[in-house]
Design a protein around this nucleic acid. Structure first.
Lengths: 342, 342
DNA sequence: CTGAAAGCGCTTACAG
DNA sequence: CTGAAAGCGCTTACAG
């Protein structure tokens, strides 16, 4: 490996000149000829700067750690896209870690968060992380942004307006003429979680605005299997028996859960949307491709990611950034095949 | 931030002792008391080693770059899981980059592959990368493993036995009694690609083993939309008109494509598996949850990832590792709802 | 075990 | 612009 010193020698200039050239520094002016000689030397020697060394000097790595609950969560796709684009725009590279392997005291976490390795951390869905990991992330003095509104206690965070998203979903069903609408969700992932409460609040708000009575939530985790189970045991029997208290429509917390609900309906012989309408929350490419195509509420996932990076970049730079909810891009109901009038 | 020097001072020992303690070096023996004092000092000062500096000395970063065609490709989920587990086992941390942003000359690529930043690179599905990127990766002198058998020209690679996988898929349909089986796939992603040819070869092998005549491939890209389009235009009309040359079963190159095929069949009123059986290739969590649940062939994706890391680790360590196809875990057909006897 | 020292490859002032 | 030098925080010989 060629070093900067060798490049300087080959180009017949001093090291600081090469360094300035590489960093595109404007404080040092050099002649076009110098510039060309340096460029040629770099080219010929195949020189690449040793970034580890640069980090040692600048105490900056231009690496951001991103912690996600699980790598293959389709709900995260657009958030990650936003994060990567934001990172590119701000000159960072991403180190992505799965929370599954980030149990407290894990080697991976140490490596990922080691002070000298990354400039900052983005944590998505903190509720999926255990306390040890969270305090490990937060207590390290590293700038951290949570894409989540669960960890308001002194940390920086940015969140979607979940209450409003669910309100819009519920609104969509009310407008179709539904009056018996169930809310699916609510099994808290951690004791800290207030997310589901917020979401349920949006459901209540929509119903009350139309003088309809809210119903108790159908408690259910977010995995497809849990949606499947909840629908099969708590909804399907009532629908099949045409009981009066059976819902005619469902607002499901989560598109992943809703996939399980649709599968359960199929298996139980419940027609969607003939017998029951279903609307999911921030759908994915798959929910739109599977049949029947799921109606969902579109949330600004991409923006959550890209603005999260922008926020983190500011914090790293020592600027103040208020935490808050992403409100300027309103949720939008996307009607597809799983919702209809009762 | 505390430094090693400060720790040494606080513990009343020399720097080399602290360094040895941190690295768990066995060449230097220290008393239990010394060990305890060092541990206490580290704890009290909240010391974390500066890995950038360590890299500078050891010329190792313990970071691996992973390049994927797109982050949200569900087919990659298990490969990534394998890569992360393998990385943890071998003491590496992962830097994950999306090929979409890795066009030639991109900053991200530079950063990701910069000699001093990572010890090695894993590239999945090289066919999705442009030539400039590929030569950038390969020409840098960095150890690289391609999880792919397309780039045999002097590079290290590890691949699935695609021909055998498709053979097993085809075999499954033959055993159900099908005789008119179409192969879906074949639009090469890059001129280099021989993958699809290999897959088609597996289809031919299975048919010939049963004295059945292979049919020309239905040429089709791998996105769901392309599967949708191909089925709608080239298969559905013949099936609906009950033409003699209509296939009774389909082997689809790819579970992603097959999702599109199922959607197209639904929309065209073609019953699956009543009118046509469909089997996909290495399915994902979603293909098993959507209804009807897709029959697929299970491939050792996880192992591809974890062994890829093991291979790369050996290469980084200067050992020789033969490239090859992962043959010891045979493909297995998983019959679900989309395949039946004709 | 200790302690003083060299050096990894840069960046950054600093005197010319 | 140049050139000699300090120093980032470690690891690694090396003499005691």
């Amino acid at each position: 490996m060629a070093t900067l010193k060798e490049v300087a020698k080959a180009a017949g200039v001093s090291m600081p000149i090469v360094s300035a050239y590489l960093r595109g520094s404007t404080s040092i002016r050099m002649s076009a000829d110098t510039r060309r000689r340096v460029a040629t030397a770099i080219e010929e020697l195949g020189y690449t700067p040793n970034l580890a060394t640069r980090s040692l000097r600048t105490a900056r790595t231009n690496v951001l750690a991103v912690v996600v609950p699980e790598l293959d969560n389709p709900a995260l796709t657009d958030v990650l896209r936003g994060i990567y684009d934001g990172a590119t725009r701000h000159g960072y590279v991403i180190m992505l870690g799965d929370a599954v392997q980030l149990t407290s005291g894990s080697q991976t976490l140490q490596h990922l968060l080691s002070q000298s390795r990354v400039d900052g951390v983005i944590v998505t869905r903190s509720s999926a992380l255990d306390e040890g990991v969270l305090s490990g992330v937060a207590g390290r003095g590293l700038p951290v942004v949570f894409l989540d509104n669960e960890s308001t206690d002194g940390h920086h965070w940015l969140a979607l307006d979940d209450a409003d998203g669910i309100r819009v979903a519920t609104e969509h069903l009310v407008e179709l003429g539904h009056e018996q609408i169930d809310f699916f969700g609510g099994r808290d992932i951690s004791p800290r979680s207030s997310m589901t409460k917020l979401r349920y609040a949006g459901y209540i708000a929509a119903l009350q605005a139309h003088k309809l009575a809210p119903r108790p939530p159908v408690i259910c985790g977010q995995e497809p299997e849990q949606g499947y189970e909840a629908f099969s045991t708590m909804v399907a029997p009532r629908v099949v028996q045409r009981r009066r208290d059976a819902p005619t429509a469902l607002v499901v917390n989560n598109a992943t859960t809703a996939m399980g609900v649709l599968a359960a309906a199929y298996d139980a012989g419940v027609a969607i949307p003939g017998d029951v309408s279903v609307i999911g929350y921030h759908g994915t490419a798959v929910t739109a491709m599977a049949r029947p195509r799921m109606s969902t509420v579109r949330m600004p996932m991409y923006e959550l990611g890209s603005r999260g990076v922008a926020m983190l970049d500011k914090i790293i730079g020592g600027e103040f950034m208020p935490s808050g909810i992403l409100e300027d891009i309103p949720p939008k109901a996307i009607a597809r095949d799983t919702t209809a009038s009762p």
